[in-house]
Nucleic acid binder design. Structure first.
Lengths: 212, 212
DNA sequence: CTGTGCCGACCGACCAGTCGGTTTGTCATG
DNA sequence: CATGACAAACCGACTGGTCGGTCGGCACAG
């Protein structure tokens, strides 16, 4: 085992990987892919460049690993929120709110997922698509149920899910840049606009009945 | 005057600028800011690097000039569509459709405005915000009218405009990546989802009248 | 003595931007 | 109309700084 001033350092392989991912998340989050310098991640990890490259084959792969890790967490949150057995449309709304909340909680995380990747150029697009697709799938599943249950007007669940995602994306980016109340704080208003477009109208009492 | 194989080339200053902008639009659109090589723009223009740098002080400024030019055109289209004297909410919808159509018409334009800018890193964020704000302002203005006229439920016009923009953005990006029918082709469905969330409910005939 | 984990000096590709120089158009002047 | 002077437009070889990635080597455990 190697030592640092006498103290034995007994990191296992996976613990070090985790440390690197943590540091990389910070550095990529602050600077974006392109402007993030590998040595900076090394500094935060007390690891040399060689050490880093022992665990990850390239800057690109490291970045993707960071993104996947974040996406996993967020998607889990969305899925949890979308679980249960209430009306499907309500669960879709809960998933939406969960994402809004999670992204509002940590600016850096949001920046990473929504913005910072683009600086790596065209290769990032596929990754972004992959991640967004995962979120879309969660929402879309509930909406599909909702359509079947007649809770929702006849709108394409896939399209609707995209629209929701886009809204979240833009709101978060705008908030990151302009400040103001976080998207989570405005979740109720957002829900009105987004849900209003799809929720099946309340069954109106028949005129005949009223006329009685 | 300089010559190219015998033909005199009598470009005025502004014509050359235009040629450069055109070429730069293509190169940036294909590669994103960072991966775009200034010499490639030179090649497309039959201009040397020195020639380019005579007209634009830096790669960054050139990129911004390209973006501004595109944004100007698009915003004009949106404004035209939003003009007139019909119901404000309908005009907002027209603006939305105009943007959807314009972006669907030219993939490269869409890529540039929606995606590629980020690749220049943090400096771009301000620019993106500026451009998106211009679009938001067009939509928001109509929505504000609509609220005053009671055409619309009580929702914050600024927030709603952001949501619409985000939806457009995501739909375009997803279409660019995954193909399928263009956002313009799906404009009706999009309108249902987005407008449904804000349009004031049709004034329902009073029960009293029905009962008569 | 072998493998895992790590070190860090170094390499080399890349490319924005520079700069001394050239070509061409314009225009005042004799 | 020839001439020379000046500027606008353009050329393209070169530089300088930046990092991602490599590689020979070291330390320690088992």
């Amino acid at each position: 085992m190697r030592q640092i001033n006498g103290q034995p350092v007994t990191t296992t392989n996976s613990q070090t990987r985790e440390r690197i991912l943590e540091a990389a998340e910070a550095v990529f989050g602050d600077n974006g892919y392109h402007d993030a310098i590998v040595d900076a991640i090394g500094r935060r990890t007390s690891l040399s460049k060689g050490g880093l490259y022992f665990h990850f084959p390239s800057k690109e792969r490291l970045f993707f690993a960071v993104l996947d890790r974040l996406a996993d967490r967020l998607v889990s949150k969305a899925e949890e929120a979308a679980a249960g057995d209430g009306p499907a449309l309500d669960r879709a709304e809960q998933a939406l709110r969960a994402v809004l909340t999670a992204l509002s909680r940590k600016r850096r995380l949001a920046r990473l997922l929504m913005v910072q990747g683009y600086s790596m150029g065209n290769q990032f697009e596929r990754k972004r698509a992959e991640i967004f697709d995962r979120f879309a799938a969660v929402i879309e599943g509930r909406l599909r149920e909702a359509v079947l249950n007649g809770e929702m007007v006849e709108a394409d669940p896939a399209l609707t899910a995209r629209i929701w995602l886009g809204a979240v994306n833009e709101l978060v980016i705008h908030w990151l840049h302009a400040g103001g109340p976080s998207p989570a704080q405005r979740a109720d208003e957002v829900a009105v606009v987004l849900m209003g477009g799809v929720r099946a109208p309340m069954p109106v009492p028949m005129p005949a009945e009223l006329a009685r």
